[in-house]
Design a protein around this nucleic acid. Structure first.
Lengths: 329, 329
DNA sequence: CTGTTAGCGCTTTCAC
DNA sequence: GTGAAAGCGCTAACAG
């Protein structure tokens, strides 16, 4: 069934029915309700392609994940993808997947916007390509410094704000010596900011407490073990990802240390698993739904309102659960 | 620029130009070449939406990943998604992402087919929903037994074939006592088939050699450590995923055992990391590109040739690298 | 082998 | 508030 037949069935003109679907103000509330309800009952839904052709909009966003496999597999990104899908769909958009193995310029999909998951290796040339030299609005989600590019909005994640809260909590609990388990990837500002951060909250600074472990649990396990075997032993561990934090908890247990009684652990990202872990992880939350909505909104204002690309920074914040306690001494 | 303008520019009719793009046999090779080349030069490409509307095809496949987050994050699935994207694009199709958090029947995308990554928790009702009660052809990729559903093809992965090869290799190398590190998920046939498999190749069967670890490296590390501390010690470890195998290698090292001199390790899935590991992992390969192509093909024959849904089974096979050696005694 | 033309199903002006 | 009609850009059937 198409719009014409459907309209005929309702004894309305196609124009009216179309307007009802599109929430145009000219159509009476009563008519709209009736149309929507009848559509539901008769199982009628509009042909998306015809709409696209008529409006020139695709109602499609392209999701670019130009990552190494191992990074894409990161749970945090999967959760972000999920949230983006949800946020896009709430606005009537679908997501086109682009894992980035090929760069086929021939069969370009016409999309209304592109969402780019940023990584250290992304260059301006990449951005240019993704946005078709600025023809398509884009938004990049990043923890790094924005690279200016045409029609490219940014959702920046200021990890420092949440990390600061984390160290403030630790300081308040009497921790003076805390170890840092890093992800071992270039381009992240955290390690270099750590010195100031720790001094600010009155902690002992020592470059040796930074261990750039890597991304895997095994690496985290090793790094945490190394840190916890030191003398004097740090009373808390801050881990750059929740995955590393889970490994740190296990490392502590392996050494006969209880969390949080003997050692406190803080994670980062607040992935789903963090809350389910034993003990539930105190962690820095990225608030993934907020990020996703911000990204979709940034795209939408460029598309609908023809606005200039925005650059917004979203703070992170600490979620307190049960992996932090008073410093043991 | 649209087709009409483009055709005018070339002094050809729209019909000819359209046929040239679509590789219709009636157009001369010379003309086609010229058209394609001019399109490239002028930066012309056809409007996808108009094509869709005119042909009734969307050139879109929907990728359904109705998984728990932790399973989706599995590297193997990310690699599969990547391969599917490639295979689909080779056929002129794009992939629509559906991570499965919502089941919004209102704004259904009209897609030409849906690709379902199967998991133990999928029921016939799910399949019915994904395929819109059989209106849309579907293909499910699974290691489990197919569930019959309308217009649903299957690409089954017979993991047993490759695992058999693995145990044959181990047997040939003199291994009699090998441990099994499982993924701890229900619905997989392997553990129950193990007894017969091991007897077939002349190994000692003992139910205790099965350790259902879990999915994480940490879990694999523990399980492997447990197994390797036994007396007598198994001379080889078969791990249900490469991730577990990497952990097993580390566990061995931790115990002062060299791989493959002191203990052999075999993984499963042949993810990218397997070849890059130290030592490069002997593993059971799923041949992900072949699976992806089979899935796309299964969809295509239903769409283009109106054929009945097919059920095909793809064997796995062993890829020998350097993590297996003669049994130490 | 090539040109002409009638749709595909919807949106959106423009009248009423 | 509603109706009629002109496209959106392409494909495919038909005629040459």
């Amino acid at each position: 069934m198409n719009l014409v037949e459907f309209a005929k069935h309702l004894n309305l003109s196609v124009g009216t029915v179309s307007r009802a679907f599109n929430n145009h103000p000219e159509v009476s509330e009563k008519t709209r309700k009736m149309v929507l309800q009848q559509a539901e009952e008769l199982g009628f839904s509009r042909n998306a392609d015809a709409r696209r052709l008529a409006t020139g909009r695709s109602y499609l966003f392209q999701l670019e994940c130009p990552f190494n496999t191992h990074v894409l597999a990161d749970r945090y990104l999967v959760e972000l993808a999920r949230a983006l899908e949800q946020a896009a769909r709430d606005q009537g958009y679908d997501l086109l997947l682009h894992l980035g193995t090929h760069h086929n310029t021939a069969e370009v999909q016409t999309v209304d916007g592109v969402i780019i998951m940023s990584a250290p290796e992304i260059t301006e040339a990449h951005l240019r390509q993704f946005t078709c030299a600025g023809r398509i609005p884009a938004v990049v989600i990043t923890e790094l410094t924005p690279i200016p590019a045409p029609r490219t909005a940014y959702v920046c994640i200021d990890t420092l704000s949440g990390v600061r809260e984390a160290f403030e909590l630790l300081a308040a609990q009497g921790h003076r010596s805390v170890g840092y388990v890093g992800i071992g990837l270039p381009g992240y500002r955290l390690p270099s900011a750590l010195k100031e951060l720790m001094s600010d909250v009155g902690m002992t600074w020592d470059p040796d407490i930074i261990v750039e472990a890597g991304e895997t649990q095994i690496a985290g396990f090793r790094a945490a073990t190394d840190l916890l075997k030191r003398n004097p032993r740090p009373t808390a561990l801050f881990c750059r990802t929740d995955l590393l934090a889970t490994a740190a908890v296990q490392a502590a247990h392996e050494l006969g240390l209880r969390v949080p009684e003997d050692v406190s652990v803080i994670g980062h990202d607040d992935i789903e698993m963090a809350a389910l872990w034993n003990p539930p992880l105190t962690t820095v939350s990225l608030n993934i739904p907020v990020i996703a909505n911000a990204a979709i909104d940034a795209l939408l204002v460029m598309i609908k309102d023809q606005e200039e690309p925005s650059v917004q920074t979203l703070n992170t914040h600490l979620v307190e659960r049960n992996s932090v306690g008073p410093a043991a001494n």
